[in-house]
Nucleic acid binder design. Structure first.
Lengths: 235, 235
DNA sequence: CGTAACCTTGATTAAGATCAATTCTCGTGG
DNA sequence: CCACGAGAATTGATCTTAATCAAGGTTACG
């Protein structure tokens, strides 16, 4: 495993060579194909994951069988690191399990597993890593607060508009020719779930936005025709 | 300000006498009456708060004027500590503001303000405090994930049942005589908002649960008649 | 007491979920 | 290269939940 890779992960950025070596020694690289599970919510917690390539979804299943996606996680981001710290220093009982399910969304998804026990020992002595971790958690908290706001205060149209506008902002600015186009990295099924709705409603919403000449959808490609309107709708 | 008080706050628990003294030196005790604002979302960020007594709500206002409560925070818990760490070490621009509004829900609400700058200097050198902070954030993250799950996967009845069941679990166990009674610490208006609904719907839901002989509501007192059913409904 | 805030109840409406039926897309094998 | 089939996406009809609107009733507190 490349040590340069570790540097790109927020938790490890700015660490010294020795520290990175220590992390490297406990890390285990794993590979997955589309629909492979990284972990189930029934499984005992063994450690957290860093996505190297590909894409994964974190999701819950309600007892009537519906799925709701909490996060989509891409390269250099972590998942399932929260449980590790929830009861830091306390003895882990046998019902210490992953809090959700995690599935690869693409073939050739690679992830690094950082075992809980070994990492705990590392971070206990490393203040810089702690601060990075706090910062990462803070960002996640901000995202979740925002997400709750979206779901409770906005209707589906606003959420969809907000998502598209946001994705547009993520596009690299130098590529002028398609500055108003985004490409969905996930299926519309998954997008619907992420936005707290269902595929049918998402489809109808896209159609409505299309009728209003705000955007055009062709498969996974979305062309934004009226960025101002889009921004306005998302509030 | 009592130093014993600081020990009860999760961030500071387990700190040495010197560390606590340092914290005490930067802390500022403030008092509020019901409906007083601790901060607005328009206000520049100055630091985070620890609630000492009373109760506060963290809430957002959507642009059509509706309020949604994100948290209710009581004694020894913190609020608005996330922004401090979100971009740890980076320069704070002038638009670095509180992410939500915060209002006292009771008279004689007391809170300690921990100024951002001074605290940053403290925590940068204190690994133990960092770990406590991470642990606190992790718990908050868990709560938020759970909250999102509730809002997206459960209907109002399930959420209300879940809330009541949860409150019941918080009751001190030694008081046998009212082991099946809870007392709301907030108004039903605020409870509705916290559960992502409106007062009318909450009222009807309580009525429905009453008709089904699961609980009885008398003002702020709720008597649970059928704990098993309640648990079952909340899933 | 009186008034304002809080809570409840009823009638109506709207958003979005559900159910059902096609259609589209794309990878696979003949 | 085409046919096939499965999963994804769309469309339409209907239904359910909970928000909205409107009107009383209750409670708390000066």
């Amino acid at each position: 495993m490349d040590i340069e890779l570790l540097k790109k992960v927020y938790v490890f950025s700015g660490l010294s060579g020795d520290d990175l070596e220590n992390v490297k020694n406990i890390a285990r690289l794993k590979s997955y194909n589309k629909d492979d599970m990284l972990f189930f919510d029934t499984e005992p917690y063994t450690g957290f994951y860093i996505i190297v390539s590909g894409l994964i979804k974190i999701y819950k299943i309600s007892n009537d069988g519906r799925e709701h996606i909490l996060h989509i996680v891409g390269p250099y981001n972590t998942c399932a690191e929260v449980p590790l710290f929830e009861n830091f220093g306390e003895i882990h009982t046998s019902d210490f399990r992953y809090p959700a399910n995690c599935m690869a969304l693409e073939d050739n998804t690679q992830a690094i597993l950082i075992p809980a026990r070994a990492f705990t020992e590392l971070i206990e002595k490393n203040n810089r890593m702690c601060l990075k971790m706090i910062s990462g958690f803070a960002k996640r908290l901000r995202y979740l607060n925002h997400h709750i706001e979206d779901i409770t205060l906005k209707d589906v149209t606003k959420r969809v508009a907000g998502f598209v506008f946001n994705e547009l902002g993520k596009q690299p600015k130098n590529e002028r020719h398609n500055a108003n186009t985004i490409k969905l990295s996930i299926s519309k099924n998954d997008l619907a779930s992420l936005l707290g709705t269902i595929p049918e409603t998402l489809s109808r919403t896209f159609k409505k936005l299309n009728d209003e000449k705000i955007l055009e959808v062709e498969g996974k490609k979305i062309v934004i025709l009226d960025t101002e309107k889009l921004k306005e709708i998302s509030s």
